[in-house]
Amino acid sequence: MQIAKYSNYTLPDFLEDDDFLRFVINPTHNDTVFWQQVTAEYSQQKEIIAEASKIIKAYRKQDVFTNEENQSKVWQRIESTLQKDRVKPKIFTLNGFLRVAAMLLLVSSIGIALWLIKGRQNEIDTTYGELSTVTLPDGSTVVLNGNSKLTYSDNWDKNSREVWINGEGLFNVTHINKDPAHIKPSERFIVHCPDMDIEVLGTTFNVRSRHNKTNVGLVQGKIRLDYVDAVTGKQSLIMKPGDYVQHTYKKALTRITLPAPEKITKWTKHQLLFNDASLAQISEIMTDDYGYQVDFSSPDLTNFKIEGEINVPNVEELIETISTTLPVKITRTDKNITITKLNP
């Protein structure tokens, strides 16, 4: 570093000087010594140097956004994305395999039929732990949970609005029907699940459709479910806000009223929420939404229940909560979790 050039530096000159900048931001011992020399040699520059460093320091006093609280959550997502790519296909039992094959055949034939009729298909796929907000052609939005898939066609002008979901999504549907007595085909909005169809007229509701089982929770508005009942065959059900329905193909449908329907949307804020949940229910969420493999040392462990409400921001804290409230020991390596009973 040359000392002489600084004798007639102006304020902007100092701001442009790399060596000066480093001295202000992150000085080494050498820097401090050097700039002491400069001010000693050219005392007329002393104040301008002080001014330049004040400007830089004042600018640097900024709010810092580190997002530290989500550091481990984002890392989990990265791990699960990379793991999913390397994962080997599972071996199915024959019965289960046939069911899956039939499902795939159904889905793909619908897909081909649609492709022939309507042209381009949009397919949104999320990995474990990833949330994604999808805006549909009519402005309606869907927040997709991890490990979920949403399919819809581009061409919504003439046909009714139709989407296919496998996994979980929170729908916020734009209302376009002006006259409820006369609904035009283009005003219909239908969500197809493997075991039922949901017809909508502008509303917010949550769908969770996994393992051929569908749960629908209505937050506001009005929707109609079309499904097949084990005894009576084809059925329809109109849902009211706060209704929560569970259905499995060709089985009886159960309906309850939620005390706080907005809670079923908590997952869209990366919150894990459970109420009086059994370990079986908790492990299902961890497996389906976050890609964990949960093993129980004995089968009766799955019936262990945690009374009351759990509301945590990530899987780490969920595990922590389980191990502090239940007499169990949890060991974890990467995505594999083993739950064993503690000896009394």
Binding site: E68, Q71, W75, L82
Partner: peptide, 27 residues
């Protein structure tokens, strides 16, 4: 992670976008 978040935050206040971008970057 922290410095990348701080830089990303200058372009958007949507934390999901920043996190998705960091996820994609590391993938």
């Amino acid at each position: 992670f922290k410095v990348l978040n701080n830089y990303g935050h200058k372009f958007t206040r949507d934390v999901n976008v920043i996190e998705d971008a960091i996820h994609d970057l590391f993938i």
